[in-house]
Design a protein around this nucleic acid. Structure first.
Length: 355
DNA sequence: TTTATTTGACCGCC
DNA sequence: GGCGGTCAAATAAA
């Protein structure tokens, strides 16, 4: 897909890199000052911001390593809130092309992106378990693991059958710390709840969503609508106040307006595109100011951390797995250029675009 | 009646 | 052969 997005893509990386460097400087500054609670709070936020930057860059660079054209990346981000060490990701395995039964799916799933997240459950926040992560899961198994004090639970996406969503997760309670749950996710959600996860698990809309999820036409319609909404558009009004929203074939959303200066907002289209805990951040709204919102992670009363690693050798398989799903509203997304309203007078200057 | 969970059995991998 | 992961029938819950 060559839509001339390379320079926006590079600009995005440059902008993220620059933002991360400033966040690092801020962190260093606050680290060198007092140790009051407020300062520590700020330091914590800075850490979160840095994690967001690092993972955004990782995702973008990872995509770039596959193809020079930016695309939707179904990959998790990590947000470090607790001081818990990151775990590993692996994408091993060889699958046979001729295997087409369910076993084939099972083998192929071994290549799905895998990442581990650790969730601490505390009584004070009323969090009842580590499973409420914004997605709807169905438990399909439990197994006693050798050497582990607690059994391991196996969950898969509730919408596996109706939406061919192959995301799974395993929940393992820590032996040393019973309040700590290690959750291993395999595969990213390709179901509709990826676009509705925020309200999904607990809201009354859940039932309505399920009804819709069983209707293929509604599902398709919702997916198209959601894709359309998720995709950015470029609108320009008059020269004095141009409302400008720019669509890109990858997850972040850029929007803003032009009034001599270009004001830009960068936000995540859909947090599930990157694993459910994606950061959203706001780039400078004025040439002089620079601020960032906290990541819009779904904490759900728990504290969580997860990490993602992709080795070079893993990438093709992962990419293949992501793009192989024909029903996915997310993966392999081809950006519909006909939906983009481009102002031919819009100053798409590479160096100034994000300023 | 429908949906979710439990749990023993099965299968593939090491 | 043991272990981890998954299936699917039985059961429970809504």
């Amino acid at each position: 897909m060559d839509c001339g997005f390379n320079w926006e893509y590079n600009s995005l990386i440059n902008e993220l890199t620059q933002g991360m460097e400033h966040a690092k400087q801020l962190r260093a500054y606050f680290s060198s000052t007092t140790s009051s609670d407020n300062i520590q709070e700020l330091h914590l936020h800075m850490q979160i911001i840095l994690s967001s930057f690092e993972n955004s860059l990782s995702i973008l660079k990872w995509t770039d390593s596959i193809t020079q054209t930016p695309q939707i990346v179904v990959a998790p981000t990590s947000i470090s809130v607790d001081k818990i060490s990151p775990k590993t990701v692996d994408l091993n395995g060889n699958f046979k092309d001729n295997d087409q039964d369910l076993r084939y799916v099972s083998k192929k799933r071994k290549q799905l992106p895998t990442w581990t997240e650790q969730v601490r459950v505390s009584a004070e926040n009323g969090y009842e378990g580590p499973t409420d992560d914004g997605y709807s899961w169905r438990k399909y198994g439990q197994k006693d693991i050798l050497g582990a004090k607690y059994p391991r639970s196996y969950y898969r996406c509730t919408y596996r059958l109706v939406q061919n969503c192959w995301a799974t997760k395993q929940v393992q309670r820590s032996d040393d710390d019973p309040a700590l749950f290690e959750i291993t996710y395999k595969g990213s959600h390709t179901c509709n709840q990826a676009f509705n996860s925020a309200a999904q698990p607990t809201s009354p809309e859940k039932h309505e969503f399920k009804k819709q999820a069983n209707n293929p036409k509604i599902v398709q319609s919702n997916q198209m609508l959601t894709n359309l909404q998720a995709s950015l558009r470029v609108n320009t009004n008059d020269l004095n106040k141009k409302e400008t929203t720019c669509s890109f074939p990858f997850s972040p959303t850029f929007s803003g307006f032009v009034d001599g200066n270009l004001h830009f907002q960068v936000s995540q289209v859909d947090d599930n595109l990157v694993g459910g805990y994606s950061p959203s951040f706001v780039s400078p709204t004025t040439p002089e100011s620079s601020y960032f919102s906290l990541p819009s992670c779904q904490m759900n009363g728990s504290r969580r951390i997860h990490s993602l690693h992709h080795s070079e050798s893993d990438l093709p398989d992962l990419f293949s797995a992501n793009t192989s799903s024909t029903s996915s509203p997310i993966v392999g997304l081809e950006f519909p250029l006909e939906h983009v309203e481009l102002d031919p007078n819009f100053p798409f200057d590479n160096s100034e675009f994000f300023r």
